[in-house]
Amino acid sequence: MTFENPSREHIKTLLEQAKNVAVVGLSDNPERTSYMVAEVMQKRGYRIIPVNPNAERILGETCYKSLSDIPEPIDIVNVFRRSELCVPIAEEAVKINAKVLWLQLGVINEEAAEIAKAGGLEMIMDRCIKVEDSILQPRRDIQ
């Protein structure tokens, strides 16, 4: 069966309910897309939790080596990794009871989507979380 993203209305609800966003593959380089997207989301009021085994802090937040190392609940796992690397991330997102697995624009993995959905997670892929948030919640205050 071909994957289909939730409706825009449902994505809006997921974003409204989200507080903690773990960003897998968040770079500490301000010129990288992952950094720029996470920085805007942080300014829009989301708590960004970096998952990067090669950095200690990004955007003022402690970095974690893996999703399992994060000591608090995660609403959205936002993934900036190549498509072929997403299956273990989906498995770990299920393991930590995240609510949503979100694969960024250009990141598509049907097997990861099946794992997430079977584990009870909402699944979004091939969409930019920053763009969706800006479209669906245009009045969200930037701090």
Rank of each mutant, 00 (worst) to 15 (best):
T2Y: 03
E4S: 15
E4V: 15
P6T: 10
P6G: 13
P6C: 13
S7V: 07
H10V: 14
H10Y: 15
I11K: 12
I11S: 06
I11Y: 13
K12N: 04
T13G: 09
T13Y: 07
L14E: 11
Q17R: 15
N20A: 03
N20S: 05
V21W: 03
V21G: 03
A22Q: 01
V24E: 05
V24F: 09
V24S: 01
G25L: 13
L26V: 06
S27Q: 04
S27H: 04
D28G: 14
D28N: 14
D28H: 10
D28E: 07
R32L: 02
T33S: 12
T33M: 05
T33K: 08
M36I: 14
V37C: 02
M41T: 00
Q42C: 07
K43P: 01
K43T: 10
G45F: 06
Y46M: 12
Y46L: 08
Y46N: 01
R47Y: 00
I48P: 01
I49A: 00
I49W: 06
P50M: 00
P50R: 06
P53S: 02
P53A: 11
A55E: 14
R57V: 13
L59H: 01
L59I: 01
L59D: 04
G60T: 03
G60Q: 09
E61M: 08
C63P: 09
L67Y: 10
L67M: 02
S68Y: 01
S68Q: 12
D69I: 07
D69W: 10
P71F: 11
P73L: 03
I74M: 06
I74T: 03
V79S: 06
V79N: 01
R81Q: 11
R82E: 14
R82G: 02
R82Y: 13
E84W: 10
V87H: 09
P88G: 08
I89C: 00
A90S: 02
A90H: 08
I96D: 10
K99D: 02
V100S: 04
V100K: 02
L101F: 01
W102V: 11
L103S: 03
L103A: 11
Q104N: 06
Q104I: 08
L105I: 00
G106K: 08
N109I: 00
N109L: 03
N109K: 02
E110H: 15
E110G: 05
E111K: 14
A112R: 07
A113L: 06
A113K: 07
E114D: 12
E114N: 15
I115E: 05
I115M: 04
I115T: 09
A116W: 13
K117N: 07
K117T: 10
G120K: 08
I124D: 08
D126Y: 10
D126E: 10
D126A: 11
K130Y: 00
S134K: 02
I135C: 05
L136N: 06
Q137T: 04
Q137D: 12
R140L: 11
